[in-house]
């Protein structure tokens, strides 16, 4: 896995980075007031560094009979540095710093690969840096944005405008309740799906065998 750059791999890696960055961004979104504006919501995402949040992630794949679920902490350390620490069911630390992704698993040597062969990711990282600094215009250049709901329960849909990105990621939805972003779902072009539960949603205790319905329910949150 030290050798990236296979065309087929690009999309998913892109999705991953996107998800990681959005996640941290959304974890701190705190829209306020009754009448919700997209602009207000997104401006609220601007964050100081460093910041961090707990997460639970489920990956649904056509290769698998059940989702793979991991939980841990996400940290945003600046425009080009993100750390994702898995604590359950095993320990793993991933770091994206500049062009290099390093994955360190307990009891194994660290493995790293470079984003050099996936330059699109670099431009995405740059645009998310814009997001985290409250640059809504730059974000709108990359995605078609689509807001549903009200301040109590909202969903933002992000559809990539760039055809080469869209080829791999169909869309991303971020849902939240009031001032609390709860969940981020990435729909990949091959029907794979990743659901990330954040903030309060991530602190819930997991059932023995969580399924798609359980995760969807956590995204929506308890009825008000």
């Amino acid at each position: 896995m030290r050798r990236p750059g296979l065309a087929a791999m690009r999309g998913a890696l892109r999705a991953l980075t996107l998800a990681l960055t959005l996640t941290v961004a959304c974890a701190h979104a705190a829209p306020s007031g009754e009448g919700l504006e997209l602009d207000t919501l997104l401006r609220g995402l601007a964050r100081p560094v460093p910041s961090s949040t707990g997460f639970v992630e489920a990956r649904f794949s056509a290769l698998l009979t059940r989702p793979l679920v991991v939980s841990g902490t996400l940290e945003y350390l600046g425009p080009d540095a993100l750390v994702r620490t898995v604590e359950q069911p095993y320990r793993e630390r991933s770091e994206i710093r500049g062009d290099t992704v390093t994955v360190e698993r307990q009891g194994e040597p660290a493995q790293s690969f470079t984003l050099q062969r996936v330059p699109e990711i670099r431009s995405l990282l740059a645009s998310f840096a814009a997001l985290l600094s409250g640059n809504v215009a730059a974000l709108e250049q990359q995605f078609e944005l689509d807001l549903h709901g009200d301040a109590r329960r909202w969903t933002v849909g992000l559809t990539p405008r760039d055809a080469s990105v869209h080829q791999h990621i169909r869309s991303i939805t971020v849902s939240g309740r009031g001032s609390e972003p709860r969940c981020l779902t990435t729909f990949e072009a091959n029907d794979d799906l990743t659901i990330l539960l954040l903030t309060r949603a991530a602190s819930l205790s997991l059932p023995a065998e969580p399924d798609r319905a359980w995760f969807d329910a956590q995204c929506r949150g308890p009825s008000p």
Partner: peptide, 23 residues
Amino acid sequence: RERDLSSPAAGLLEPWLPSDPTL
């Protein structure tokens, strides 16, 4: 490989797994 699928390398590796689970 299960752990890989839950890691940042998931997208890199997924297409290969059916024919090459030992990479």
